[in-house]
Design a protein around this nucleic acid. Structure first.
Lengths: 200, 200
DNA sequence: TGGCGTCCCTAACGAACGTTCGGTAGGGTT
DNA sequence: AACCCTACCGAACGTTCGTTAGGGACGCCA
């Protein structure tokens, strides 16, 4: 059972760098707009060498999308644990902030997922959909719980409200600049708008 | 000055059908994922024949995006005229409904725009950005007016709120089925959520 | 020392891409 | 009758695409 320092790091390093570059390029150009020679160029290898790490382009793309969900779920779990037993509004705020963290703080994977998943090849989508549904189910369960606890206004269409919230959060990747803006402020604004609305 | 029945209709008909097919395909696969042979196939002509109507693929794509904005602006104008002098909440509801109408009732152009514009070639984006900004400016002016009239809660970040609303509206194209769902209900839900929030 | 696995290379494949070319069928004008 | 314009075609161009084949350098283990 050999313990190697550099090789094993590089091994994962190459895979990682391939996925990183692919995710960044997907955000910019969409899945179909990314060529493997582009990916390889960013990583610093030749296109053919990608096949040492992945069996096909679709496999790379699928790995990016899966990672995007992984990141979201980890962010969710961390927020859930941190706010266990807290009041509903605090828990909601934590989960919104966690989702935005997944989009901006933990690599380009989640952002690539939410912007490009819909236009990916059907085979890729079908393979990832179950994972994706599992994450959405967490939100659905959480908001459903709030509803049955009487925390939401009567007659609130929980499913539609969740999707509207998702829309508000996910499209931030199109305009929010994490380097210049304040992510906490953004999360507070979205949370407040979802919870209280904008009316005087 | 000859007045021809079929030829002139067909002339515009071909252009129209090219744009229609392109917009539909862009929604599904993104700009880079659409081949001209695919477009031509839907229209019922050969790829080379597209060049009789447009000078390049990018020109077709640009025309689709411009049309998407046209549709939004017409919907805006119609809503503005219809609710002139009405109370703020009624006007807001009308404009939200109008934007959703642009997405679902008036062809695939606006939906293609909001889903694929970001990943389009830079040359196409740059040519369309001014038009796009003009539409957003209408919303910004409207919401700014509401704010100065004291209709919005103090301290409401109007710019961020507008973008969050855009996100909620535009991502409906990813999950809302206009054939099965009720667009009026959807508009009411989004309006209510934006205005009042979901809290009890 | 010799063999093996990892990691990447050059070279090339067929397919698909956007685009160009020359041509043709048919209606309209002169 | 001669001509032109519109709308489209088949064939081909050069380029880029995803992918495959085969090989070389390097470190590890027997």
């Amino acid at each position: 059972m050999p313990v190697l320092a550099d090789p094993s790091i590089d091994q994962h390093g190459a895979r990682q760098r391939i996925l990183d570059s692919t995710a960044e390029l997907i955000i910019e150009h969409g899945v179909a707009g990314v060529a493997q020679r582009q990916i390889a160029g960013r990583v610093g290898i030749r296109a053919a060498s990608l096949y040492h790490h992945f069996a096909s382009k679709n496999e790379i793309v699928e790995a990016v999308f899966r990672r995007g969900i992984d990141v979201m779920e980890h962010a969710w779990d961390e927020a859930a644990e941190r706010t266990r037993g807290a009041d509903p509004r605090t828990r909601l705020a934590a989960h919104i902030r966690a989702h935005l963290s997944a989009l901006f703080d933990h690599g380009p994977y989640t952002a690539a997922h939410v912007t490009a998943f819909r236009t990916a090849p059907a085979t890729v989508r079908d393979a990832v959909v179950p994972m994706r549904d599992a994450y959405e189910a967490r939100w659905a369960a959480f908001l459903g719980e709030l509803a049955t606890d009487g925390e939401l206004a009567d007659g609130t269409p929980v499913g539609l409200s969740r999707l509207a919230l998702f829309g508000a959060m996910n499209t931030t990747v199109e305009w929010f600049d994490a380097d210049r803006g304040n992510l906490d402020e953004l999360a507070d604004t979205i949370t407040h708008q979802f919870w209280n609305g904008v009316a005087a």
